[in-house]
Design a binder for these strands. Structure first.
Lengths: 256, 256
DNA sequence: TCCTCGAAGTCTACGGTGTATAATACACTG
DNA sequence: CAGTGTATTATACACCGTAGACTTCGAGGA
């Protein structure tokens, strides 16, 4: 459910770039099915998006979807492209602003997208989706980084690194949320459920002194068993300062 | 195949921390089955690790595995813990070295682990595996960061951010490799197969000028359609400089 | 208006998955 | 050596994606 394999790229490109006519008999279209699938995944996760279930929601039989979506592998790509296309509708990159604000906006937009559509963190990045949404997103992000003093290669690497960090920490957020049992409100509940059993199993309590100390401190100060969002913010901060050093511009603040 | 849901944590903890006796009738153990599963995943990917297939390799029936692995969800956790436990057997963190070398070694060890076991990048991080391997790894990494001038919280956030970056870019490497058709040697082959169809589909060639320029430059200079490894190296470099700024120590080199 | 014909939609079926359940056979303890 | 409990087995179920054959519909020409 995560590898994005088995995609027929040519079929996919056709589906991605055509203007998605609504089918007269059933009233569905590539566009409408994709939207339905994204909504379903947002609500119940990517695993809930089965062909049969999606067909049920669309009011058609399973096999009726195939002319519109290609196959399940292609459907996932369509969903990814759709989400990529709306990333900068909620969070926009300020025009003519400091490069710091632009980079931060890129991070925030992707972070928000990962929160709104947690299932995208299940899917591998790397191979780009050859569709209009992903292409527009890429263009937007590169344009924000263009002309601040980085070479093309540096821009590309920096952007990839930044997005990897965002996706990675967003994934961790998501995993922490998923592991909550129904009805639990805090991350600590999962941990406090596990902890007694774990303590018993470990036996020798002096085996992981540093980890114990750090976990305790983290729990006391943030109230969480782990804090991916904090890691995200710190990570972006570190990268910003790293870029500043490359650019040779004065760094902002004192880092605290 | 990516969400790590449905894990019975208590059953899992029992399996993770017991000393895995070999079963007299079948000759298998939690340990041996886990190793077998890791090898199989390394060779053929996580999807190849089905209960039936694994049972076949172990020389028993499918249902015979269950007392040793719990269920498939728990098996995956066992595999993750196993891999975590051997991360620092190949790449070690230098004793008493500069903090830069330590951080770099952490990144390299995790990068190498992701290369050796590509399937781990399919799986969500975040919720830690409550096992001896993962605990040891966490302890090792925190100890390397301890005492260089960061607070406990900063250490934790920095480590999480660093590992997210490594996993994220490693994933992208993996995705690029997977998308190669059989027999292809270079990333560019996949891209050059797609490109004509994509160019035709897009129509208006002036729509993504920055993306086109950057892609062209990247292709010319690296010979790749995308370069996650370069992004990894730059990302680690940026984070190192970011840490240096926080620490107030002189930065090394000029960043080029 | 009717007819034809190609495409869209449907039905059935296949091989795969994880694993619940119940029956069996074995290894260890007394 | 008998008893007991658990590892192991065989069977079965519900679900998955989708290939292939069949049916039905909508649009264009006479």
């Amino acid at each position: 459910m995560a590898k994005r394999t088995g995609v027929d790229e040519f079929k996919l490109i056709g589906l991605l770039w055509r203007d998605s006519p609504v089918s007269p008999r059933s009233g569905i279209s590539t566009q409408s099915v994709t939207t339905l699938a994204v909504d379903l995944a947002d609500r119940e996760g990517l695993d809930a998006v089965t062909i049969r279930r999606l067909a049920e929601e669309a009011g058609v039989t399973a096999m009726a979807l195939y002319p519109h979506i290609g196959g399940r592998a292609e459907l996932v790509e369509l969903m990814l492209d759709h989400v990529a296309g709306v990333t900068y509708e909620t969070v926009t990159i300020p025009e003519g602003a400091d490069w710091r604000e632009c980079v931060t906006a890129i991070a925030e937009a992707n972070w928000a997208s990962c929160q709104a559509h947690p299932w995208i963190t299940d899917l591998a990045t790397g191979r780009p989706v050859p569709g209009p949404g992903a292409s527009t997103k890429y263009e937007t992000e590169l344009r924000a980084l263009d002309g601040i003093g980085l070479t093309d290669i540096e821009m590309e690497h920096t952007l990839t690194a930044l997005l990897s960090l965002v996706q990675g920490t967003a994934r961790a957020t998501r995993a922490a949320q998923d592991s909550r049992l129904p009805g639990e409100d805090h991350d600590t509940d999962w941990w406090s459920n596990i902890e007694p059993a774990l303590t018993t199993a470990i036996g020798d309590q002096t085996r992981f002194p540093t980890a114990s100390r750090v976990s305790r401190t983290l729990g006391e100060q943030t109230g969480k068993a782990n804090d991916p969002e904090g890691a995200y913010r710190r990570g972006v901060g570190l990268i910003l300062d790293g870029i500043a050093k490359r650019l040779g511009t004065p760094t902002s603040g004192n880092g605290r």
